[in-house]
Structure formats: structure tokens, C-alpha cells
Amino acid sequence: MSTERSQIVGQSRRSTIILGLAAWIAALLVFFPIFWMVLNGFKEEIDANSSPKLIFDPTSDRYTEVTTQTEGLLGFQEAFTNSFVIVAISTLLVLIMAIPAAYSLSIRPIAKWRDVLFFFISTKFLPIVAAILPLYIIGTRYGLTNSRIGLVILYTAMNLPLAVWMLRSFFSEVPKELVEAAQIDGAGIRGQITSVILPIVAPGIAATALLCVIFAWNEFFLAVQLNSVDGSTVPIWVSSNVSTRGNFLAKLSAASTLATLPVVIAGWAAQKRMIRGLAMGAIK
């Protein structure tokens, strides 16, 4: 009798099927463009632009094309290196700053922690477009445009409020008694954080880091405004494959697929950490 484990008591079989079907349709609708992009990347341009075909002769020529360096243009390697460095360093910086901030906003809340939390999120109220001119002026004055350092600073600032908010809620789930027990067991603040708190919030940190990576990896506006010559990132590289001389859909699909891959891999790696439940068996 336990074959229908997911059946809810009192729910008719028909509505279960209809709901399930609706979920599948929604999921496929969302997934389809990605599926089509991957498919298009392996086609000849003529096939990609003509009527949609599911069966075709796959080719990796488009990938060779997009990864081949053309003199004077932004290359695949350069863009990926820039992106990797900028994303990795900015995410690391975010975590280094957000973890202590989250600690002091949840486990040992400072006075007025609510106001502090609001201040953090309020920095996101300003549309980035409104800030681009001052950013550009300051950037050029201090030589931060067309450099990785400029984007590292901006992406760190961009992701920090979100990271503090997310980590704070994960830290709040750490039972207070665990920290107290560690204290009584003789652990100082560093010991409490490294031995007790961090292992428990590790899934939360992984989730936060993943989001920071995704946002920084996909950021386009700041990159294209400030780093169009040097220090250009992957989104700029993808858009550089949009040509005025015609519609190269297959080539663009190949480039987009390449740009998506690192995020997918990062997500897959983080998921393994995130699945592990929070504070299981800690209390009671």
C-alpha cells in the first residue's frame, strides 16, 4: 500500500495527476530555452537559423570558432581568466566580511541589529544605473576602470548585503545552547566559530557563496560600462559574438553554453554541501 507515498490524505488521484502534469509542463517550459541553446551550439549556422530540427548532424565547429583567438578582439581565454579571478576574489572577500557580520547580527546580536540589517539592504535600493556616472568618474580617477580590481571591489560591494542577510538567517538557526556549551567547554570566540558554528552553517555558506558566484559571473552592466577595453568578463565576451553582419545563432549558442557551464558546475558542487541538513541531532 506504500507505493503511493507522495499521495496526500484526502486528495483525489485525479487532482494529483493534474498537479503533477502542470508541474512538469512548467518545468519543461523553463528548461526548454536552455535545452535549445545547447542543441543550437552543435548545429551549422544554416540549420540553427532555419526551421527547428531535433535530428541533425552534430558538429563542434562552432565551439572551435568561438574559442579561436582573433587579433584585436576579446578572446575566450582572456575573458574566462578575468571572470574566474574577479568572481573568486570577490566571493572570497564577501565571505570574509559577511561571516563575522552575520555572527554579530545573530549569535551575539549587537544593539540595534535590526537597523544595521536594514542599512545593509538599503544599499541595494539605489538602481545601479543611477550610480554609474559617479562610479565611472571615481574609477577613471583612481585607475580602476578597465582593471580587475575595480570589478572585484564593485562585485564585493554588490553581493555583501545579500550575503550578510542570508548568512544571518543561517547563523540564527544555530542553537544558542551549542555556542554556550562550547564557551563552557573552554572555547574562545575563534574556537566557537571554527569548531562549532562554521561546521553547522557550512551548507548555508555554500548556498550563499553559490549565489554570489552566480551574480558576479553573470553581471554585465558594470562590466561593459567600466571594463570594455581591458579586464572584460565572460558576459562581454558572449555579447561580442553578436555580430552586426548577420545572425550567427549557432555560434552565439555555443558561446552562451560555454558561459553557462562554470555556473552549472559551481551549482552542482555547492549542492552536495547544501543537501546536508542543518544542525541535525544537535538538540533533543
Binding site: E177, L178, E180, I184, G188, S195, P199, I200, G281, A282
Partner: peptide, 17 residues
């Protein structure tokens, strides 16, 4: 607390998970 040389048993045990 860390310098008081005491040990405490909590109601919910507070074991490090």
C-alpha cells in the same frame, strides 16, 4: 565561562552535531 572550570548539561543536551 571558559575560565570558570565548570561543566554544564543542557536541557536539550547541546551536543555538537
Amino acid at each position: 565561562p571558559q575560565d570558570r572550570d565548570i561543566a554544564m548539561v543542557f536541557q536539550n543536551y547541546a551536543l555538537y552535531p
